[in-house]
């Protein structure tokens, strides 16, 4: 059975002057997949991510996201969601206001937003929290809400940047369960992270080093291939030798 590709990258090259940040990247991401994107600082991870999110254009190569070519970034942006650990919700706004703002940005009317908002709050067992300031919510709840908000406009792909680093183990489990559930609904989850134990949760991971993809497979297959007990060891093994003087 041929799985549907939602991200197709062919020979992606991105140069900044004489510096090649991305060197002929080629990979596919499938519908409903949890895809981990790993790399050391400066490996070109952020650059590639920006291109996939429609924030930057490739120097050469072909990139298609949700069926849209990277030369139409505005269209891409409508079909993706984004959540980062650092910024997600406005702390001085209430839960409802954040949701309404987000819906409004994606061109939804209040009429469309309201029922969906209630549904979202119900699903998170957040009913009654609508008028609470984000500031007053515990970290774990904020994180879950931020994820739900990133999915509010029903994107085809959601990009997560270190989604569960620093949260407590219980919240973390709940969060990954939300991610599984999202993927099971056919939404692709694209995770970038520094933390290799986050990578263990992904269906497939790719490791970047010096602008190239040096590994791409399921975590277990990669662990077997390199004979390591964890993705962390594996990552250090792959990424370390190349950066004596990085």
């Amino acid at each position: 059975m041929e799985r549907e590709k939602v991200i197709e990258v062919r020979d992606l090259v991105k140069r900044f002057g004489s510096f090649t940040a991305n060197d002929r990247l080629t990979f596919d991401v499938y519908r409903g997949e949890i895809f981990g994107f790993l790399g050391a600082n400066g490996a070109g991870k952020t650059t590639a991510m920006r291109i996939l999110c429609g924030l930057s254009r490739p120097t050469s190569g072909k990139v298609t996201v949700a069926g849209i070519d990277s030369h139409r970034p505005e269209e891409i942006k409508k079909r993706i969601g984004y959540m980062s650990q650092r910024f997600s919700l406005y702390e001085d706004l209430t839960v409802n206001e954040n949701i309404e703002l987000y819906g409004g940005i994606y061109g939804m009317t209040m009429k469309e937003i309201r029922p969906r908002r209630e549904e979202l709050l119900r699903r998170l067992s957040f009913t009654g929290y609508g008028n609470t300031l984000i500031l007053a919510l515990p970290l774990g709840l904020r994180q879950k809400l931020a994820f739900a908000v990133a999915l509010f406009h029903e994107p085809e792909i959601v990009f997560l940047d270190e989604p569960t680093s620093g949260v407590d183990p219980v919240t973390r489990r709940q969060f990954w369960e939300m991610i599984y559930e999202t993927a099971s609904r056919g939404i692709t989850v694209f995770v970038t992270t520094h933390y290799m134990d986050e990578a263990e949760y992904c269906d497939r991971i790719t490791i970047m080093s010096e602008g190239r993809i040096v590994a791409l497979d399921t975590p277990s297959a990669l662990r077997q291939q390199y004979g390591t007990a964890s993705v962390e060891e594996l990552f250090v093994k792959i990424a370390r030798p190349q950066r004596i003087n990085a």
Binding site: G39, A40, S165, H194, Y195, E232, V236, A239
Partner: peptide, 10 residues
């Protein structure tokens, strides 16, 4: 080690 990549952390 917060915000630092895995190689540097090791």
């Amino acid at each position: 080690t917060t915000g630092v990549d895995a190689v540097s952390r090791t």
